[in-house]
Amino acid sequence: MRAQFVMAEIWIGLRRNLTMTIAVIVSVALSLSLVGAAMLLNSQVNQMKGYWGDKVEVSIYFCNKNNQKNTKDTPNCASGEATQAQIDAVHSQLDKNPLVQKVYTETPAQAVVNFKKQFPDSPLAPYVTPDSFNNSLRVKLTNPSLYQEVASQVEGQPGVAKVDDQSAVLKPLFNLMNTAQWVALAIMVIMFGVTLLLIVNTVRVSAFSRKRETGIMRLVGASNFYVQMPFIAEAAFAAVVGAVLASGMIAVGKFVLIDMVLKKQITLISFIGWGPVIQVMPLLVVIGVGMSSLAAVLTLQKYLKV
């Protein structure tokens, strides 16, 4: 394999077909940035679900010292911090309930750890102590829609400060983000289709404009690989450039949308950092190169007789 010769052939091919190459690059960049956006949206959703997010439906918080001082919100806590016996009583009640699939316990110390994991850069992080949290039971139901029956059973029991329907709080937000993800995926599928057609057409035109060369190559006994390689490499090259552009767009998008705008306006939500963004980038290159090479190979099967 004469690398220099092959590179020269690829360069000639790309230049000869410049307008089409640019169209392929732009189209690959757009569809790959949609892929990246959908992936990042997914990791954002996972991030927001937090530690307990989609594992449980009901959270039962027990009274702690702070609740006793402020009985306006938690009238049930006037008698002070919940005792271990009270907690165990509720726990065993839940265990007997056929609607309950599993009960997890979370101590204030574990809660601190989970909080710090979910909000690593929260300004509050250095100040949270176990005293800021309650003992809690996290309940997974066999049927999440029957939340109310379980809640009413434990609400008002001695030591119980508050019962939360976890899903009621987060569900609308998750629904919104799921919808956004589906929309991104749908647009992505259409863009992928357009990109594939464009690549097929570009390779076809390229193969046609080099009919004379490939004809001679076949005649003198160049291997199929040698004849087809420049076309595949052209498509792959365009895909790499497109993937790099897409990575850039995603990085800029994350910086502008999340770091500059959303993070400043919404402090309650933990947003994704640069980690997931950087993880997505090589994936985009792989997807882009794989997709366009495959399209090129299939096109050549049809238009480049060997």
Binding site: M1, R2, F5, R212, I216, M217, L219, G221, Y226
Partner: peptide, 29 residues
């Protein structure tokens, strides 16, 4: 192991004579 010649020559117009001949060897590595 076969050589082929045609009525219409089938040379590459944008390569020199030497490059045209070399092309046959380059593409078989």
């Amino acid at each position: 192991q076969l050589g082929t010649v045609f009525q219409d020559f089938r040379l590459l117009p944008n390569k020199t004579v030497g490059q045209n001949v070399a092309f046959a060897l380059e593409v078989i590595g």
